[in-house]
Amino acid sequence: MPSIDELRKIAEIEFADIVKDSLIVDHKLRIFLVKHGFIDVSLSQKLPDKFGFHWEVTDTDGTIFRYDNFPDKNWSNVSSYPYHFHNGSQMNVEASPFPLAILEGFRAFLEFVRVKMRLADQPV
């Protein structure tokens, strides 16, 4: 499993256009975006290879996007279980659209954030 510091470097270097800063606190990484909120990254200390990438869109009314593989039985009907994606809200859960490997999934999740941010900034 990659370290939280490896993920931090990927975010700050490969996604410098959307990442303002980051901070590691108690085995978790918070990535501050240039706008539209922050991303929290969790790597389980107890369960091997379990992770969560959570984007909190702070300039909306509670929109969240989260990709994780914690085995929540509420989502056992999802075809990619335990991998699942909260698309816009806690209860809107679907199969993972991201690679299942942590590093590739992390990069794909950050690319998803990048694309969403660009779309949000386009004039209507």
Rank of each mutant, 00 (worst) to 15 (best):
E104G: 07
R66V: 01
F53Q: 08
G88F: 11
L33E: 03
R66Y: 01
F15L: 00
L47V: 11
R66Q: 02
L119Q: 15
I10H: 09
Y81S: 03
H84C: 04
L33G: 10
F70S: 04
F106P: 06
K28F: 02
G37D: 09
V124K: 15
A108V: 00
P48H: 11
I13L: 13
F38A: 13
K116G: 06
V19Y: 03
Q90F: 07
N69D: 07
I13C: 14
E111T: 04
A101M: 14
N92A: 12
D26A: 15
M117V: 05
E111K: 08
H54P: 02
N92E: 11
F53S: 05
I18F: 01
I31Q: 01
F65A: 04
G62D: 11
H54D: 02
F85Q: 01
A11C: 08
L100S: 13
S80V: 02
S22E: 09
L7C: 11
A16K: 15
S80Q: 00
R30E: 14
H36F: 03
V78M: 08
G88K: 13
E56C: 10
F112V: 03
I13P: 11
L43H: 11
R30C: 14
D21I: 07
P71F: 02
V78C: 10
N87M: 07
H84D: 01
L119N: 15
L100V: 12
S22P: 10
H27T: 13
V124T: 13
P99V: 04
F85H: 03
V34G: 12
E56D: 13
I102F: 07
D72A: 02
P99H: 07
D26P: 11
E94D: 13
D59T: 08
S80M: 02
L100I: 13
K116R: 15
G105L: 07
V57E: 05
K9E: 10
F109L: 06
M91T: 11
D26L: 09
K35F: 09
G62F: 10
K35D: 15
F112G: 01
F106E: 03
P123M: 07
P82Q: 08
K35E: 13
V57P: 05
L47K: 15
G62Y: 13
Q45H: 08
I64K: 14
V19T: 09
S44V: 05
V113H: 05
F15W: 00
S42C: 08
T58P: 06
E6C: 09
F98V: 06
F98Y: 06
M91Q: 14
I18L: 01
G52W: 04
S80W: 01
K35N: 15
